[in-house]
């Protein structure tokens, strides 16, 4: 009895598999005809319809106005930039500093004279390097957080490891400098002045807050941020805020970074007049 029942179950299962397998084969055999037929009907009755285009419309695109990178020749419809630039303009720290969530790219916009120059640093220095001042206790009302900074280190985008020096030059590095906190076990971690969950909560509730509440919440959120950020002159001078040598820059580069050329240019009260270049090049001589 029992055996028979078992056998029948097996047979039934076998039949089921055989049946569904046959069905699958039938579907595979007939599907191309169906698809082809539907495509033809689509062409006759909906001539303007492009399935691929509709799919790509549905795809999420994070920043619609972002410049198409012009280096791949196929993309070269240059409505955004005249000069041929490379893909580096689109590279940014990974993961991006929490600040970018609200302030976006090119966060500096108040100081019109130097905003582009300040933004230039975003490619390789995280916000907290300048906006959480190390040794905050020396400043009245300064955030305590500054005291926790143990070192400034490069964090490599691809691997997430900390390094004292990285390959690259002139803002084109595969890493970002972060203020790093070393805890009692000797584990190094990025010092984040703002908690991500708090920031998200703030974004959620901010539309419902009145002005006072909003200001208070914003102030609370930015508690860890130094009122007086590190300024240009603090770094670009001898023995400045950042130790360029420690960060792996060559002697020559460091000399350049703290030279008069830089410091003079970044002094925002001063305007430098560039001499008009007189062209001394001679016309090409033909033989």
């Amino acid at each position: 009895m029992n055996k028979e029942k078992k056998a029948s179950i097996f047979t039934r299962a076998f039949r089921m598999i055989k049946k569904s397998g046959l069905f699958l084969i039938k579907v595979i055999y007939l599907l191309p005809f169906f698809v082809f037929g539907l495509w033809l009907l689509g062409l006759v009755y909906f001539p303007g319809f492009d399935l691929n285009a509709s799919i790509s419309l549905l795809r999420y695109r994070p920043e619609p106005q972002v410049l198409p990178v012009v280096i791949p020749k196929k993309e070269a419809v240059p409505r955004d930039h005249f000069h041929m630039i490379d893909a580096y303009v689109e590279k940014s720290a990974k993961p991006p500093p929490i600040c970018v969530m609200c302030h976006g790219r090119y966060a500096h916009d108040k100081e019109k004279k130097v905003r582009a120059l300040l933004n230039m640093h975003e490619g390789f220095i995280s916000c907290s390097v300048c906006h959480v001042r190390k040794g905050g206790e020396n400043i009245p009302d300064g955030p305590r957080l500054g005291n926790e900074i143990s070192a400034f280190l490069w964090r490599v985008w691809a691997t997430g490891e900390f390094k004292k020096a990285v390959e690259g030059e002139y803002g084109k590095y595969p890493a970002t400098i972060f203020p790093v906190k070393v805890n009692e076990q000797g584990i190094r971690q990025i010092l984040t002045p703002i908690s991500e969950s708090a920031a998200r909560r703030f974004l959620e509730i901010s539309p419902e807050l009145n002005t006072e509440q909003f200001d208070a919440a914003r102030a609370k959120l930015h508690e860890g941020i130094s009122k007086e950020p590190v300024s240009c002159n603090d770094c670009h001078k001898k023995d400045g805020y950042l130790d360029f040598i420690q960060l792996g820059f060559s002697r020559q580069r460091v000399d350049h970074l703290i030279s008069n050329e830089f410091v003079g240019m970044i002094n925002k009260d001063k305007t430098i007049h560039l001499p008009s270049v007189i062209d001394f090049r001679e016309a090409p001589q033909t033989e």
Binding site: L30, F33, F36, G37, L40, L41, L43, V44
Partner: peptide, 22 residues
């Protein structure tokens, strides 16, 4: 040429292919 091609292909698939093979 295009419209007739659509008609022919659909007819062949629905009428002829079904009739003799499917």
């Amino acid at each position: 040429h295009g419209m007739e091609a659509v008609l022919a292909c659909l007819a062949v698939m629905v009428w002829h292919m079904y009739e003799v093979h499917l």
